[in-house]
Simulated scan of single mutants.
Amino acid sequence: MSSLAPSLTVSSADYADPSDGATIVALLDAYARDPMGGGEPLPERTRVGLVAGLAATPGAFSLVARIGGEPVGLANCFMGYSTFAASPLVNIHDMVVLPGHRGAGIGRALMAAIEAEALKRGACKITLEVLSGNETAKGLYRSCGYGDYELDPVQGHALFWQKKLT
């Protein structure tokens, strides 16, 4: 991280702090508006309930990257459990770097902070989802040691599926 601006910091967000809460909502809204986040602003219901929902979710944690105190990146993560390893894991659910700050090492700093937090929490691995067309993010994740999940190459790699209920 020595090549990064000395004013770049990554710290845990405090869900009870209204300023940190507003930062989380603003950064996640910026991500939602990006084509890789769906291209639409967060619905009002999400904006209002997001931070309380995170605070009420056991194992949730958010890391905020700031340059000179200004929020420029966010990672929302959740603890899970690996049954095959019988150990906790961390899932990166959201990863945000504001467009004007991409390519400056902020994503890499967030990834390093997530890994440090995962190790501190005794996690055996970190998981994430990434859109197949998001080549920039895939490049970052690969350079940080991430790759497709597979048990047996003959059976193929895991796919992330969903079924919306509401």
Rank of each mutant, 00 (worst) to 15 (best):
D152G: 04
G80Y: 01
E150Q: 08
A123W: 01
P41H: 13
H157V: 04
C77G: 03
Y81P: 05
I24D: 02
R33K: 13
K125D: 10
S87I: 01
M95E: 06
T127K: 01
I126E: 06
I67A: 01
N91D: 12
G139S: 05
L151N: 11
M36R: 05
D34R: 05
H101Y: 14
D20E: 02
D29W: 04
D14V: 00
V97E: 01
L89I: 06
L159P: 00
R66M: 05
D152N: 14
G21Q: 03
F160I: 06
F160K: 03
G21E: 04
R121Q: 15
D94G: 13
L4P: 03
G38D: 07
A137H: 01
K164V: 15
G69P: 02
K164H: 12
V72S: 02
D20M: 00
K138R: 13
C124K: 06
R45G: 09
G80H: 02
A85M: 13
Y141L: 13
G39P: 09
V25Q: 02
K163Y: 09
A22W: 00
L42M: 12
L4N: 12
R33V: 07
A13C: 07
I24E: 01
N91I: 10
G59W: 03
R47T: 12
D34W: 04
A22C: 01
Y31I: 04
Y81K: 08
G38H: 12
R45Q: 13
G103V: 08
I92C: 01
D34S: 08
S19G: 06
V90L: 04
R47A: 14
F84G: 07
L4D: 11
A104N: 12
P99G: 08
L54Y: 09
G59C: 04
S82T: 06
A26E: 11
L151K: 09
D34V: 02
D17K: 00
G105R: 10
E44T: 09
E129R: 05
Y146N: 03
P35Q: 10
A65I: 08
V96N: 06
A75D: 04
G147S: 09
A60V: 02
P18Y: 05
M1H: 15
G133E: 11
S3M: 15
A85T: 13
G105I: 12
V25C: 08
T23P: 07
A5Y: 04
G156A: 03
R108Q: 15
Y149D: 12
L98Q: 09
T127E: 13
P43C: 11
F160Y: 12
G147W: 04
E40Y: 06
V51Q: 13
S143L: 11
T9E: 10
T23G: 11
M79S: 08
F61L: 05
V97Q: 07
S132P: 01
D94E: 15
R108C: 12
A109S: 15
S62L: 00
Q162W: 11
A32R: 11
D17A: 03
A158T: 09
A118W: 00
V130P: 07
